[in-house]
Computed example of a mutant assay.
Amino acid sequence: MTARPALEIAVTSPAGARIARENGADRVELCTALELGGLTPSAALVEAVAAEGLPVQVLIRCRPGDFVHDAEEIALMVAEVRSAIASGAAGVVIGALTADGALDTVAVARLAEAARTAGRPVEVTLHRAIDQSADPVATAALLPSLGLTRVLTSGGAPAAADGRAAIAAMVTAAPGVQVMAGGGVRPADVPALASAGVASVHLSAKARAPRRLGGTWIPLGAGGASAEQDTHFVTDPEVVAQARRALESVG
């Protein structure tokens, strides 16, 4: 009998990890700046989230934008991998591409090796850089040789529900690597994604936090966000619970 897929929730705080745990998540991915696609969290934040009890996969991404990283950025992310693991991470989420859209296997191998020197078992996930690669399925086929634990992917589509065929092809192309569907996933998408053979499903389950400032609002960042948009995301307990129920309904 095939195991039911696991549920991973992207969180940005200890409160988010607590909500994820209380509503049925199996593990969390921790980052900051979810509105930018996620960036590396601080060591203190990793420690605080790990204390909530669920296994924590820490996103290692030193800046927003593309996934083509120079030597200085790779060196920084190697240090971030070591810091995250020393702070209690159960795993790290890494990735890099070359300028022509291929997987940067040298950089990925270096980041993965930094994780493996932790002195304890650590999981290593390839993040959604794969979805910006020239050929996501062919990229997935490289992962077994790199010894990665899993890959997070939307199948190269804007949302995983639209990339289900490619996700299923990745499951076949990368034996021994856990394929995790993520990217624009809603609880209603979970049964169909599970049918693609994925090992887990990833949701941000996010909602905009209410603004609490009583004084004058002025824009502080780029992009000219409105007062309503100039906020951060928090974890929605009902979305997590709906995703858990959707998974429980699968086979």
Rank of each mutant, 00 (worst) to 15 (best):
A6Y: 00
E8L: 05
I9F: 00
S13L: 07
P14Y: 00
A20T: 02
A20V: 03
E22D: 15
N23H: 15
A25K: 00
D26A: 06
D26L: 00
R27Y: 02
V28E: 11
L36S: 09
L36W: 07
G38V: 07
G38C: 13
A44E: 09
A44W: 00
A50W: 00
A51D: 06
E52V: 01
V56Y: 00
I60Y: 04
C62P: 03
G65Q: 08
H69Y: 15
V78S: 12
E80F: 00
R82V: 00
S83C: 11
I85A: 03
A90S: 15
I94R: 03
I94W: 01
I94Q: 11
T98E: 06
A99T: 08
D100F: 02
G101R: 03
T105W: 09
A107R: 01
R110S: 13
E113M: 09
E113P: 08
E113W: 01
A115T: 12
A115Y: 01
A115D: 08
T117V: 04
A118G: 02
A118S: 05
R120F: 08
V122P: 02
T125Y: 07
T125G: 07
H127K: 10
R128N: 06
I130V: 15
D131W: 07
A134M: 04
P136R: 08
T139S: 12
L143D: 07
S145V: 05
L146C: 12
L146N: 14
L148H: 06
L148A: 01
L152A: 07
S154L: 01
G155L: 06
A157D: 10
A159N: 07
A173C: 06
P175F: 07
Q178P: 10
V179D: 10
V179K: 01
V179P: 14
M180V: 15
M180D: 13
M180C: 12
A181T: 14
G182V: 08
G183S: 08
G183T: 09
G184H: 01
V185M: 05
R186Y: 02
A188M: 10
D189T: 14
V190A: 12
L193W: 05
A194N: 04
G197L: 04
V198M: 08
H202A: 00
L203Q: 07
S204Q: 08
A205C: 14
K206C: 13
A207R: 03
R208W: 04
L213H: 10
G214I: 13
G214Q: 10
W217C: 10
W217D: 09
W217S: 12
I218H: 02
G221L: 15
G221H: 06
G223Q: 13
G224T: 13
A225E: 14
D230V: 02
T231V: 14
H232W: 12
F233S: 14
D236T: 05
P237Y: 06
E238W: 01
V239N: 08
R245E: 14
L247P: 12
